[in-house]
């Protein structure tokens, strides 16, 4: 009876292999964030978006970047789907929950990965609507007299809106939380553990998460409070 009730079907892709794939997708997305941030920071160097426009122009026309866009989409989809599958599977692994709240001392960043992940996903949808669909021509760029229709102008208009900037800032706060655990977790998943280097990995994870969260947050703050057309 026990066998019948408990045993799952043999998993085609083992739990560990799924995690390797999810971590690989995650690491790729982390690299992408660095590149994305580097480009975005060109918005605030004070040249009215000239360098930024050049960068956008290069990125939209480069064939390698075109291919990488598909890889990026695949990375997001794989990471999200496996993440949701693992969460669902884990939820089912404890059908009767504890009545007392769990008190094991663990990092809050690690406990709420799915929650921060969902917030980031919602932001991603909004972000795609605002920026990527424009690129594809589904949504029109806003136009102003000074800049005409370009992405720099788009940044002025969207970040000038306190609501959008607020959502942006909150999302990046959660992205920071997500990345803090994600970075060090990827090392553990691939078995890169060493007593001497673990502290170092944790410090790098914190620096990376802070750099990404703060780096992206500077941009809406700049347009909201410091930018004068």
């Amino acid at each position: 009876m026990k066998e019948k009730n408990l045993t799952n079907k043999k998993l085609v892709v083992s739990s560990l292999s799924r995690k390797y794939i999810m971590a690989a997708a995650g690491l790729f997305l982390m690299l992408f964030l660095v590149m994305h941030l580097a480009t975005n920071l060109l918005l605030i160097i004070g040249d009215e978006g000239k360098t930024f426009d050049k960068a956008v122009d290069f990125l939209t026309k480069n064939p390698i970047i075109k291919i990488m866009e598909y890889v990026l989409f695949a990375g997001f989809i794989i990471h999200i789907i496996i993440g949701l599958m693992l969460e669902l599977y884990n939820y089912k692994a404890r059908p009767v929950k504890y009545k007392a709240p769990m008190r094991s001392e663990v990092s809050p960043f690690s406990k709420y990965m799915i929650h921060s992940g969902i917030i980031i996903f919602i932001f991603l949808v909004l972000h795609l609507f605002h920026f990527f669909f424009i690129k594809l021509g589904y949504v029109d760029l806003p136009e102003t007299a000074e800049h005409g229709k370009d992405f720099f102008n788009m940044a002025i208009v969207t970040f000038g809106n306190p609501l959008y900037s607020g959502i942006y800032l909150i999302s990046f706060l959660f992205l920071g939380f997500h990345l803090k655990h994600a970075f060090q977790s990827a090392f553990q998943t691939y078995g890169l553990y060493h007593n001497r280097y673990n502290k170092f990995i944790k410090i790098i994870a914190t620096i990376y998460a802070l750099a990404i969260a703060i780096g992206f947050s500077i941009i809406p703050v700049y347009f909201l409070f410091f930018y004068n057309a």
């Binding site: 408990l6 043999k10 739990s15 599977y89 884990n90 089912k92 692994a93 769990m102 690690s110 998943t189």
Partner: peptide
Amino acid sequence: MVEKMDELGFGFCSNILACEYD
């Protein structure tokens, strides 16, 4: 052993490390 662990319906590790703590 990993295959058997998966079959028996244990959850997947997400590196929270409550196991080590407790």
